[in-house]
Amino acid sequence: MSEFTTPILTIKKLNKQFGSGCEQCRSKVDRKLNRNYCPNCGTIYSCRDITFDLYPGEVLGIVGESGSGKSTLMRSIYFDQPATSGEAYLQFYKEGKSNLFEESSQQKKYIRHHLMGKVYQNPVQGLRMGFTSIANIAEKMIAAENRNVESMESRGRELLNQVRIPVHRMMEAPKNFSGGMQQRVQIAKALSNNPPILLLDEVTTGLDLSVQANVLDLIKQLQRELNISMLLVSHDLGVIRMLADRTMVMLDGVIVEQGLTDQILEDPQHAYTQQLVHSLL
């Protein structure tokens, strides 16, 4: 990991709610919620004032139970859904001075295709299952305005080789692949335009343990080789321990604790983090 200098990504007070809110839950001072849910109007506050920095070459883990808001956070950052409010700044975009959430849809597409890659928990969300593997990689390159067929094919071969997919299977569709191989094709696709940031959302959930280990080894190797910054979401502290330099713990849409991963695992401060760590022992 590089020396911490200027953050590559800064998120400030990101909020995402589902529902319009009411008098009981709109005020942050005297908000009456049942966890992150308003029993009066049914509004769900999935992310509440989420603030953090991601540094060059760093893997930042985000851990929490289902419904804690971690995947909603990733969807907001990747523009899969709009944030309700908040700010996001990317060092590689307009010198980190423009709030990404306020950019036009055209600019958001540019950011999404040139400056970020995302690997989804369910490969169906990240891949076209009926396209060939190499066509899936080319699709993201075309979205980034690459029109050179030769360079796309060459890059596709290089990436499939890098993620350990046999090149003789590049013309096969991911629907014919195992879950672990589908995730590796997704990783290749996400890396196709050399983005400085990779978002990984529960990428090993549902895979057999041996397959999980292979995918995690691959991510670790790629991170070392490419020195890419990663945001890694998981409910599994074992995954976080293996990959993350720093960790944020989320509960009910709020960051309840953050720090160096070793520190969080060895000396958890918040009761929920203590519970998580003890369940790992």
Rank of each mutant, 00 (worst) to 15 (best):
I228D: 07
R184K: 05
F18C: 08
M74L: 14
Y93A: 07
M170E: 06
P268K: 07
G96K: 09
S66P: 09
V63E: 08
E102K: 13
L90M: 10
N34W: 13
T84S: 14
P268G: 07
I134Q: 07
L199W: 08
L127S: 03
R224F: 03
T51I: 09
L100I: 10
L209Q: 06
S178R: 02
Q275C: 13
Y272K: 04
H278C: 12
T6V: 13
I240N: 03
N227I: 04
I165G: 03
S104R: 04
E87A: 12
G206Y: 09
G61V: 02
V149M: 08
K97Y: 11
V277R: 06
H270K: 05
L198I: 10
G179A: 00
I44H: 11
R224C: 01
T204H: 05
P174K: 06
V239A: 00
A83R: 11
R157L: 14
G253K: 09
F131Q: 12
N176I: 10
P196M: 07
D236V: 05
V59E: 07
A173C: 12
V149D: 10
R246C: 02
H114L: 05
S178I: 01
V124N: 08
V119Y: 01
K28Q: 13
D208N: 02
L237M: 13
A138L: 02
L14N: 03
N214R: 15
G180H: 00
